[in-house]
Design a protein around this nucleic acid. Structure first.
Lengths: 139, 139
DNA sequence: ATAAAAAGATGTAATCATTACAACTTAATG
DNA sequence: CATTAAGTTGTAATGATTACATCTTTTTAT
């Protein structure tokens, strides 16, 4: 039983407006960690009146309610991930793709509670380098 | 024997111009992970002609040569760290301070070589929450 | 040493992601 | 059904970063 965008929103106490549902649905089914601009461009087809401001507002809401995470791995533009399970991200300096890495974070997650007296609320692990595909093309 | 800014620059094949030396020296002796703007404001006193563009150029050079690391933990502005040893960073959502955390990264560093076929060149670990001092003030 | 070329620094203008804000629309409440 | 709150939209403002042309300093070759 896969969770729908509706379930996710309601489960995080976010009112499911048509715009929010469309944005969450897009984010859930995208594996490319889209930017605000990409989401806007793509979603305009199915929702021609959708404004960029709404996407900004919506994603801030999602992040505040824990329904998505914001990635600042790319200095240029922020991107987003609907998968809120702790996992690392890799960015390729050549093709700029952001790729999920599901290994490597287990060891530092337990320290998420408190650390040196600071209250830890979230964590991000970012790797940078050259992805598998670009590596091949560079030979 | 503490390494000087001169040593660091020469050791990373960066020509030690007066501006670069001043910037590296400031970065090395600062524990606050300064932004470009903060560096500019502070360094203007001792070097009144120093331009912001030069600081941007210089820090790009430092990062490219591995003499400093760029931190994108704060969505608002990029900040920098002259300590290139792998360590984590914590940002306080209340006072916005960026604090070094020297524990928690050892476990994932060994995976820095390759991972799922990707070539890993660098890594960042970011924690967010409320710092010790702000926690106390909130009681 | 000196002229030519390269590297570095500076200031201004342009770019572009993000935010502020006011007007408008839709949903909730009584 | 009327009133209020919540959500959406478009435009304008902000502010970090970059592009670029000019100027200065350093390096190289004659």
């Amino acid at each position: 039983m896969t969770r729908t965008a509706f379930d996710i929103l309601v489960g995080h106490n976010i009112k499911p407006s048509p715009q929010r549902l469309a944005i969450m649905d897009y984010l859930m089914h995208s594996c490319t960690h889209p930017t605000i601009d990409e989401m806007h461009t793509s979603l305009l087809r199915q929702m021609p009146t959708l404004s960029k401001t709404t996407i900004y507002n919506t994603l801030r809401t999602f992040v505040e309610h824990g329904a998505a995470q914001m990635l600042t791995i790319n200095e240029k533009t922020t991107c987003y991930d609907a998968d809120t399970e702790p996992h690392a991200h890799f960015i390729c300096e050549r093709c700029n793709r952001v790729i999920d890495l599901y290994h490597g974070t287990e060891d530092i997650i337990p320290k998420c509670e408190t650390m040196h007296g600071h209250l830890i609320k979230s964590m991000q692990v970012y790797y940078k380098g050259v992805c598998k595909d670009c590596k091949r093309e560079l030979t």
